[in-house]
Amino acid sequence: MEAKTNTKPSSLRWAILRQALLRKTRESPDNQSPSAIKRISRKTHQGFNLIPGQVVEDHVNEESNFRDVCICYTLPVDGTPKIFVRQRVNNGVDLNDFEVSDRYNVDNTGLVCQWPSEDVLAYFCLSHADMFRSKRVIELGSGYGLAGLVIAATTEALEVVISDGNPLVVDYIQHSIDANSTAFGNTKVKALTLHWDEEVTYNISNTFDVIVASDCTFFKEFHNALACTIKLLLKNVGRSEAVFFSPKRGDSLDKFLEKIEENGLQFSITENYDSEVWKRHQGFVAGDDTWPSYEKDHCYPLMVRITL
């Protein structure tokens, strides 16, 4: 058993950066245990695997010199439609990523991988297509945007905006929108670089019926801006709501919900919201070896519904 470390999180993050830049994935940073780094990064190759996907293309991106892959997701609904998502190969990172993060005051987690909560969100949207039909929908902090693409392709939404604050991520979203353009029918779909602040969101305020997001509450410094953005974007007439899927991650979700209340919004939390997701969660808790590092607090997304 490895000993616990008392190293500060900032030191651990620099250790992660050192690993990425040296590209020595088998080497643990000096005096840091692999479990300590995992505690900070929380990057995972495991997931709920609710929507099966396989790599159908692998090539070097001429603009970034990273290896990109195109993943074909087969949606478990009538007609078995397919969605193609372009993303980087896991572990791809360079100094430009951190420069962009610093310049725009955003994190770069959207470039890391398709996160498990996004898979759960996309599956939930498939199972509840009626809530999006003829609605204007926006996905916040979407990363590679699987959920937004699923909504656009299967729910007959009026419009779907797939957004992220990192312009490098948004470039990937636009590639995926272009690759799936024939799957959207009459639904308008666009990518958007969206920062969670009042100045940027003013021109689209009070226009969306539904907001969706997954695992966007980890960074506490963004909590208030995210709560304000939700309030600005939701329609203030008729029925509108934001649906978030977020693990507790210590007290991060609780702290975010405090900001939700401070901004005059209401919320409800549901733990068991889908029988299939719950069954897989229980299997992981019981020790299913397909996800050996599974921890409920950090891995299982609760459903939070937010209203004006």
Rank of each mutant, 00 (worst) to 15 (best):
M1C: 11
E2C: 07
N6C: 04
K8S: 07
P9I: 12
S10P: 12
S11R: 12
I16N: 06
L21N: 01
L22N: 15
E27Q: 13
Q32K: 15
R39Y: 03
I40N: 09
T44H: 01
H45V: 15
H45L: 11
P52Q: 12
V55K: 14
E57C: 09
E57K: 15
R67I: 04
V69H: 03
C70T: 09
Y73Q: 05
T74M: 13
D78L: 09
F84C: 06
N90W: 04
G92A: 14
G92F: 05
V100F: 12
S101W: 13
Y104R: 13
N108I: 15
T109E: 03
T109K: 02
V112N: 02
D119W: 06
Y123I: 05
Y123L: 09
Y123T: 03
C125F: 05
A129H: 04
R133L: 01
K135H: 11
E139G: 01
G141K: 04
G145M: 11
A153R: 11
G165W: 10
P167F: 01
P167V: 00
I173C: 08
A183P: 04
K190W: 04
H195C: 08
D197I: 00
E198M: 04
N206P: 02
I211Y: 06
V212M: 14
C216R: 05
F218D: 03
F219C: 10
K220Q: 13
H223W: 09
A225K: 05
I230A: 08
L232Q: 13
L234C: 11
K235Q: 10
N236T: 06
N236Q: 11
N236P: 03
V237P: 00
R239L: 09
A242G: 07
K248V: 06
D251Y: 02
D254Q: 08
K255A: 14
K259E: 00
E261H: 11
Q266C: 11
E271H: 03
G283V: 00
F284A: 08
Y294P: 14
D297F: 14
R305K: 11
